[in-house]
Write a protein that binds this DNA or RNA. Structure first.
Lengths: 235, 235
DNA sequence: CGGGGCCTTGAACGTCGTCAAGCGATGTGG
DNA sequence: CCACATCGCTTGACGACGTTCAAGGCCCCG
């Protein structure tokens, strides 16, 4: 079922079996993408939404100054551009980080779902707002935390989210980013990100290498980053 | 009419006179707040949404490290916590910056509106997603722009939004923040914000003093900040 | 075997933060 | 009415966190 992972991570409000079936049937087709392939280009009018089934996806914006800012990292079960339904176009781009499989929901079908079910509407709306809450936590990270803590906090977030969908069973999990990507996500330079990663590793908290994160000491890491998962709204 | 300013700034999708009346009638009461008064405390269960009628409001988060990060600045016509309808509680706080008047919408009535009208649902949903788009632009600002440009960009944003609701007729407009607040919004220290403000003033672009912004040279400022209002979704 | 992507490290630099002091305006209680 | 506290703003000196520039290594792939 296409929507299993999504519904596993979004249990509020509860929906009926019929609503669940209606959501599932709104999928018209699936698609695949290769690493670095652009899924949504900024400012392009959109007519469908993309649910990530497999793989990793990033949302980012290129600045006129020539820098790149990653805005979000998506994992399976995330609607990567559900906000395109009310907005009709996005002000940022979306690209695949790995080989990716997605399910597509035409805006017209989403609208039909919102007409039929207030609970389903609330559920979908809520999922876009959890994304926004993550956006805000990133503002806090970039605006008010040191470089090392920013990276540690990001690892905590990804570990927590991946564990939730059963893709971080052990203390090692995939995070298919380069050090440049990590820097673009945290508002640092690649050079400095590299130094801070070494520090986190040498301090025995977390090790990042070739797209994989190994949690060396979860309690130490969590405490160091002052990670509080409330903003992820795991209700 | 309570919802006039909101509807003036949110014209997509178009709604009927009946839908407009239904929205208006969902207001159960109004309330007022004084400067620095907390309107919503983080993590408190909520049962209503707040539409800002008059005055300025901030959304912010205090970090465990003892810093404060402002996440958004709201002006009349903004729903400051419509996202509390699907989320039920917020992970940040909301406080008044000035004397403030608001209209209150119980969650139950919002739900009733979403049941009755898909267009109204889309309109409300959309407004929360424009807030999220602003959040993302702030990520770009804090993560990828220099201190002076961050401030310049914020002034551009506030000027553009205020002009839209007719509260920035001339080149001078109120922005009831202290320099500490500006620093908390842009991820800077008050000392450095002060220096950058002086620089912007001396370069003849924009002057900020005692809660008022004077645009000295709009084209120069806009160009300096590379301000592109697309993310505000003024359709 | 050459090239490119990614990572690593050093050295020098600069933006920005910290600490500290002082100013003017406002407000309040003795 | 003045003494004094508070708040917001301003400025200087100094230092640090993070950037820039540069070079080299490793590995994969054509």
């Amino acid at each position: 079922m296409y929507t299993d992972l999504f519904l596993k991570t979004h249990r509020v409000p509860t929906i009926t079996a019929e609503e669940r079936a209606a959501l599932e049937q709104a999928v018209v087709r699936t698609a695949t993408y290769s690493p670095k392939q652009i899924i949504v280009r900024q400012q392009t009018p959109l007519t469908q939404c993309t649910l990530l089934l497999e793989g990793f996806v990033e949302r980012y914006k290129d600045t006129p100054e020539g820098r790149r800012q990653i805005l979000a990292i998506h994992i399976p079960g995330d609607f990567v551009d559900l906000h395109s339904y009310p907005l009709k176009r996005l002000e940022h781009s979306v690209a695949a980080l790995t080989d990716v499989r997605v399910a597509l929901f035409p805006h017209a079908d989403v609208r039909a779902l919102t007409t039929e079910s207030a609970s389903l509407t609330e559920l979908l709306w809520r999922s876009t707002l959890i994304d926004a809450a993550i956006n805000r936590e990133w503002i806090v990270s970039i605006g008010a935390r040191s470089a090392a803590i920013r990276l540690a906090h990001l690892f905590c977030e990804m570990y927590t989210r991946l564990k939730r969908i059963g893709q971080a069973e052990t203390t090692t999990f995939p995070l298919p980013l380069t050090q440049v990507d990590l820097a673009d996500a945290t508002g640092l330079t690649a050079v400095h990100a590299n130094r801070m990663l070494r520090q986190l590793r040498e301090r025995g908290m977390v090790a990042f290498r070739q797209g994989e994160v190994e949690i060396l000491d979860w309690d130490a890491l969590r405490h160091f980053a002052k990670f509080d998962p409330a903003y992820l709204f795991f209700d």
